[in-house]
Amino acid sequence: MLLEQVAKLPLCARVYACRFDGPKRKERARGRALAWMVAELEYGVRHVVLDRREEHRDACDRRLMIGLAGRPPRFAAMHRSSAEEPLLWVADIVVSAVAGDLAYGGDKQIERIKDVLEAVNCEP
């Protein structure tokens, strides 16, 4: 039901998947995914909103995003909770659908959101 509702929204979603082989490498993979996302941001994007996590992890994101934004910064990055920014719910739904298909094979969930899913980018 949620996937069908997301598929009706006027948006384009991209998913960036980076591999990691243990919890200690998860943050590096997140950094690579964020860098990949920023490299593909369309001209004119002024704000990037990330889902709030633990404060020390948000601080790592902030340092990375400040570096990726350049000088002068071409965008501002901020953390918000899903309660503060409901569009983060959409991101969670899309990523969950794609991750499920990648983990278990097939494209059953991806097919349900194909109208909004512009790209699924995976590290080799």
Score class of each variant (00 low, 15 high):
Met1Asp: 07
Leu3Ala: 01
Glu4Val: 06
Gln5His: 04
Ala7Cys: 07
Cys12Met: 04
Cys12Gln: 07
Tyr16Ile: 15
Cys18Glu: 14
Phe20Cys: 07
Phe20Ser: 08
Phe20His: 12
Lys24Ala: 13
Lys24Glu: 13
Arg25His: 11
Ala29Gln: 05
Met37Ile: 11
Val38Pro: 04
Glu40Tyr: 02
Tyr43Trp: 09
Tyr43Ile: 12
Arg46Gln: 11
Arg46Ile: 08
Val49Met: 05
Glu55Leu: 13
Arg57Thr: 09
Asp58Trp: 03
Cys60Gly: 09
Arg62Thr: 14
Arg62Glu: 15
Arg63Tyr: 09
Met65Leu: 15
Ile66Asn: 12
Gly67Trp: 04
Gly70Val: 11
Arg71Phe: 05
Pro72Lys: 10
Phe75His: 11
Phe75Ile: 13
Ala76Pro: 03
Ala77Val: 15
Ala83Glu: 03
Ala83Asp: 01
Ala83Phe: 01
Glu84Cys: 06
Pro86Lys: 09
Pro86Trp: 05
Leu87Gln: 10
Leu88Tyr: 00
Ala91Met: 06
Ala91Leu: 03
Ala91Arg: 05
Asp92Arg: 05
Asp92Pro: 07
Ile93Leu: 04
Ile93Asp: 00
Ile93Asn: 00
Val94Gln: 06
Val98Lys: 01
Leu102Val: 13
Tyr104Lys: 14
Tyr104Cys: 12
Gly106Pro: 10
Gln109Met: 14
Ile113Arg: 03
Val120Leu: 05
Glu123His: 08
Pro124Ser: 15
Pro124Ala: 14
